[in-house]
Design a protein around this nucleic acid. Structure first.
Length: 710
DNA sequence: GACTCGAGTCCCGCC
DNA sequence: GACTCGAGTC
């Protein structure tokens, strides 16, 4: 297949700022990958090219395609081999393709000490954040009624996404809750810093701050690349926008790709204005529009075009397709269960009667609770499926525990992690002892780990001062020595000899594996560690049900697998890198990374996660008011723009489908324990050109339809 | 202050 | 359905 004129223009514009307005399915990925390989052919060193995507999945996909392309064109055998997991290819120089977050992690690892954080900063996930939030609220004596941890985190995240730091928050119009939250935000930020931790939003915020306050760091980082490419530019938030500007400011070889109709991340601070104002920021920018759709049938595109025109504020454009196919369908089911059964049964039939494979199908939904019913049906029908999204894997206790171990091994001063594992599995360090350790750490203002060390070093213990110190920095040892005297003298006496013994063996365990893992990070050492701490016994102790035991044990197996995959994929694997990778990978790591994408299975995912992907056959389930559009968007004050974003979400869903699209809804759905009647989504009327139908108004008003629809 | 009980609410989406 | 919160009770 050759490139059309617009695509060619985008591919061949090799220098200077370039804006590619690419509608859904217009060969954006192709253009991007061709352009990168053209750059390389024209003599640009691969390692001087940086491409930034939004998701890991997108990054991996791009990496694979470029490797294939280069292998095919340049006869580069090594590169080709690496595409199917070979070892030879990985030494080959590659363009850097990463998500914003992993890019920022790498930058911060090199420079964050300038901002007063330790180089081995921890990245806190939702669970860690929550425990910090809880602590903060306790400290400022807010009763839980006034502000809940979740509520606080939600506000903090919003502020951070808008690049607002605590000092920007003294708006006199603030209500009591916002005022409290702003207060807590300040404290929260301070606490994280003390703990040497950052949350996801900080990754962007701190990188931006770094560039602002330390031009030399910016110069170094910007100087690594001569070409910058940003995918899904419509979804950049303030920090990302500034980071891009900073990085590309000098060489100005910036290519951004996006589509304002697919802006679906407004809720995390994304600003469509960034893509709309690109030419203002880069006056010499070239603009290329891609409108020829190669993915979907004419009938599917017709639906997409129809629904999106209901958004008032957008760039006028109209996708075109020349592929002919069958009209999309809308299925009404009795209830949620029937809906799941119907979808699965239809996929089964398609698998049996056509040449389609499981990987050609996707079921898309709005929220993460929707797939439950589907999963059951897929399992019953024995159709392989992959559930993407939801943080559930990292929410599992056993996974969190093992990662807490790894975090402590990486940096013993990681307080949250240390407190989690100190007595997990139980080793005789009870609540009251932990309390004492905490008090000592507070009183001496040192970390809990320092207290543990001081407490265990009392008396003579030949052989207990193990190798751990080898990996400490000089500064850390100095602190440590100061700590020992104060802490030890004051508090260690409070602990019982039994507790001290337990602490001692805990410490030598940590020291031992710290040394082992820093010398050689491997999956074997990890599973040895799991064995050593007796986690198997812990699972048996906690769960009576043999089924549960084996699933829990298996999820630890997944962690070990992930470690093996990580080691396999990286030239210089280390614990830090593994932790970075996994904390950024989110859910897609749980199922074994690359292997899953190669696995032939039906994909189940949210509409958000589906952006940028395509499938021959797509099912969009739960097309009801309250679901899509989601009720939260209906309640918002800025009503219109919130619903517009839901509509774009619907548009994204529709345009994922190549050949066959099915929208389903249930007439009745279990909600909060009771079956409730539903209202068909307003988008269904818009899509089918029935916006004059009386039921359309009813749907918008949230009322049941009164007259028969088509 | 520890408890029961009923009323009211419903943490969207992701790295 | 599950969970929290606050009123009411002992």
């Amino acid at each position: 297949m050759s490139l059309n004129p617009a695509q060619t223009a985008a591919v061949e514009t090799l220098s200077g700022p370039l804006l590619v307005l690419a509608g859904a399915g217009t060969g954006k990925t192709r253009v991007v990958t061709y352009r990168i390989s053209r750059l390389i052919q024209s003599g640009v060193r691969p390692s001087r090219i940086l491409a930034v995507t939004f998701t890991n999945k997108a990054a991996r996909e791009m990496q694979t395609r470029i490797t294939e392309l280069l292998g095919r064109r340049g006869g580069n055998h090594a590169a080709k081999k690496s595409a199917d997991g070979g070892v030879d290819g990985k030494r080959k120089e590659k363009p850097e393709i990463s998500t914003f977050h992993s890019l920022c992690v790498r930058i911060l690892r090199r420079h964050i000490t300038r901002l007063g954080y330790p180089a081995r900063f921890a990245i806190y996930d939702r669970g860690d954040q929550e425990s910090v939030a809880r602590q903060v609220l306790k400290e400022i004596k807010v009763n839980t009624g006034a502000l809940k941890p979740g509520d606080l985190l939600y506000r903090i995240s919003r502020w951070k996404c808008e690049a607002k730091r605590p000092e920007h928050l003294d708006d006199p119009r603030f209500g009591a809750k916002d005022y409290l939250a702003a207060l807590a935000y300040r404290r929260y930020q301070k606490t994280l810093k003390t703990l040497g931790a950052v949350d996801f939003d900080d990754l962007l915020l701190l990188t931006e701050e770094l560039f602002q306050r330390h031009p030399e760091a910016l110069e170094e980082e910007a100087g690594r690349f001569d070409h910058l490419l940003v995918d899904e530019y419509q979804d950049t938030n303030m920090s990302q926008y500034r980071i891009v500007k900073d990085l590309a400011g000098k060489h100005r070889n910036l290519c951004v790709v996006g589509d304002d109709d697919q802006a679906i991340y407004g809720w995390r601070g994304a600003e469509v204005t960034h893509i709309l104002g690109f030419q203002k920021d880069w006056p010499e920018a070239k603009v290329v529009r891609l409108e020829e759709n190669y993915r979907s049938t004419r009938q599917i595109i017709e639906w997409a075009n129809r629904v999106i025109t209901f958004n008032a504020t957008r760039h006028a454009k109209r996708l075109r397709s020349t592929i002919d196919g069958e009209p999309p369908r809308i299925l009404q089911c009795k209830d949620g269960e029937t809906e799941a059964k119907t979808v699965v049964r239809q996929i089964k039939t398609r698998l049996e009667t056509t040449k389609r494979q499981p990987k050609d199908f996707a079921v898309l939904f709005r929220t993460n609770e929707q797939p439950r019913a589907l999963e059951m049906e897929f399992r019953a029908a024995k159709i392989p499926y992959t559930l993407i999204g939801g943080q559930s894997f990292f929410d599992r206790k056993e996974v969190r525990d093992i990662f807490a171990y790894l975090k402590v091994l990486n940096r013993p001063r990681d307080e949250v992690a240390l407190l989690r594992i100190l007595n997990t599995p139980p080793r005789g360090i009870g609540q009251s002892s932990v309390q004492k350790l905490l008090e000592s750490s507070l009183a001496a203002s040192v970390s809990v780990w320092d207290v543990v060390k001081a407490a265990t070093e009392r008396g003579d213990f030949p052989g207990s001062a193990v190798a751990g110190t080898a990996v400490e920095t000089a500064a850390e040892t100095a602190v440590e020595r100061a700590v020992e005297t104060t802490v030890e003298a004051r508090y260690a006496a409070d602990l019982s000899p039994k507790t001290i013994g337990a602490l001692r063996s805990f410490r030598s365990l940590i020291d031992e594996y710290r040394e082992k893992l820093s010398r050689n990070f491997s999956a074997e050492t990890l599973s040895e560690l799991i064995e050593r701490i007796g986690y198997r016994g812990e699972i048996d102790r906690l769960y009576a049900d043999p089924n549960e035991r084996s699933t829990r044990w298996e999820s630890l197996g997944e962690v070990v697998n992930a470690a093996a995959a990580y080691v396999n994929e990286n030239e210089q694997p280390d614990l830090q890198g593994f932790l970075d990778d996994t904390s950024l990978a989110g859910s897609d790591f749980a199922s074994g990374k690359e292997k899953t994408s190669a696995k032939n299975s039906v994909t189940l995912m949210t509409l958000h996660a589906a952006k940028g992907l395509e499938f021959l056959e797509v099912y969009m389930v739960g097309m009801e008011e309250g679901m899509l559009p989601h009720h939260r968007s209906l309640a918002a004050e800025d009503d219109v723009s919130a619903v517009d974003e839901e509509r774009r979400l619907c548009y994204v869903g529709i345009t994922r489908a190549g050949r066959r699209l099915t929208l389903t809804m249930a007439l009745e759905r279990m909600k909060w324990g009771k079956p409730r009647p539903t209202v068909p989504s307003r988008f269904l009327y818009e899509i089918t050109g029935q916006s004059r139908h009386p039921n359309y108004r009813k749907a918008i008003a949230g009322e049941a339809p009164t007259e028969p629809t088509r």
